[in-house]
Every structure is written in C-alpha cells, then in structure tokens.
Design a protein around this nucleic acid. Structure first.
Lengths: 125, 125
DNA sequence: CGGCATCCGAATAGATACTG
DNA sequence: CAGTATCTATTCGGATGCCG
C-alpha cells in the first residue's frame, strides 16, 4: 500500500489513446526515424529494415491522418515521395524519446528480471 | 544521413523494445492502475473494466516476468492474490505518465488533424 | 477467488502480383 | 519508385469449462 498516495493519476485514459494510435509495431519507429529529417519512401523502408512495403504504407497513412507526418509528392520521373514530421510529430518525439531513454537505461534490468523469472519457473515448475 | 542535422536520436532500438513489452492493449493500463497501490486480481479486473480474465492473467504474467509487478499469494480461504508495482514498475510510471500527459494535452490536436484528413479525403478523393 | 486449457472468431502482418 | 489489391499465415483476444 502507498500511504498518502495522491491517487490523482487519471493517466489511464490518455495513455490508452496514444497507445492505440502509435502503439503498434512500427508507428513510433517511423516517427523516430523521421525525427532525423525528411526521408523518401524507400529510404524509410531501408532504414526500418524489416518492415514490409504494405505496413510502411499503412503506418505512414495513419501517421499522416493523425497529423504526425506530412506527405509530399514530387511530380517527377521517376516518382519521388517524401515524408517529414509535422510540428505535432516533433512534439511527440519528446515523450517518446523520454521513454526510449528509459528503455535504454533499464532494458538490462528488464532482461535480468526476465532471466530470473524464467529460472524460477524452470526450477520450481 | 541529413547534413547539419542533430541526429542524436538513437532511441529507435530501445523504444521498439519497450513497446514490444508494454505496447500491448493492457500492460500500460495495468501498470498505471497499480501505480495507485497494490490490488488484488478481481479489483484490477473491475478497475480495468473490459479486460477478460484471460488477458489480465496473461498481462500480469508478462509484467511479472519483466520485473514490473510482484505477485503475492495469500494462502487463505478463499484464495487472495495481490499485485503491486516493483521499483522498476514505479520507475516506468515516470515516462509513461509523461506520455499520458502529452496525449491528454494533444489529443484534441490529433482529433482535429484526423478530421481534417478525412475531410480532404472525402473532398479530393 | 484465482487461474489454466481449449476452442473459435477477429484483427494483423507478410508475400505476391499488378498499376501509374 | 510508390502505391494498391488480394490472398494467406499468424497472432490476439474473448467465451466457456474445469481445477485448487
């Protein structure tokens, strides 16, 4: 029990919403990647290394819809489409990078806990 | 690489990892909920209102495995199992709440962007 | 009360082929 | 090069039934 706990945390609802929007497998990766600067479709695909072309398209559409990225079509031959973060997208980078820093700092602790848990499971059945 | 760009964000990898662990539909909700204090299984289920017993069990197992929550069994009749955040879990609350605050503050902007996008799609095909 | 096993439907993600 | 459409495999998540 936490004595004198504020219990004012209504973070549940908004966290759930933001996670429903960018909590999928690729959205955050794309946002972080675009945080390095505008990129074209194939550059993103190369940078993300593992995403399928379909998923990249779907993810970018969703991010564009929610106002995180812009899509610029250059009417050239061959076609060239560039994606960039909006102000909202850059804004999102703040808390996302905070989470990233946390993960980088505490990832080993998570790994250790997992190893411990698995060892106990194996030993105690 | 973008010339003259900061490019200090190597948050890609860790963000991906933390998202793979707590980016599912319920994990963060459970963590935030437990941030209010230790709770037993049925309390959590009531508080989350919508989660199935199977998912709650699965989610709690995952969080326990990664060292975010502890599971305490009271050998009473009827049985009583309580869950609480570990120090790592409380630590996670920081960046998660930051993300929650951001979502609460910018949710309207996301909604507006979405409405705008949908309107353009309807108008321009 | 807490939890596991099983089955089933829905949603997701990937491969492939085709268009402009 | 960028994107769409289709098909399929995998995963997710819920309902049910049984156990300690």
């Amino acid at each position: 029990m936490i004595p004198g706990h504020p219990h004012t945390t209504d973070s549940c609802r908004p966290v759930s919403e933001i996670l429903a929007r960018v909590g999928d497998k690729w959205s955050v990766l794309v946002v972080v990647q675009l945080g390095c600067g505008r990129m074209r479709f194939s550059e993103l695909r190369r940078a993300l290394a593992g995403i399928s072309q379909k998923m990249l398209t779907t993810t970018l559409r969703g991010l564009e819809r929610d106002g995180f990225v812009t899509r610029t079509v250059h009417p050239t031959v061959p076609p060239k489409v560039e994606y960039a973060l909006t102000e909202l997208g850059f804004d999102l980078l703040g808390p996302v990078k905070a989470l990233g820093d946390w993960a980088a700092a505490n990832g080993p602790r998570m790994d250790a806990a997992r190893a411990r848990f698995d060892a106990v499971q194996a030993g105690a059945g």
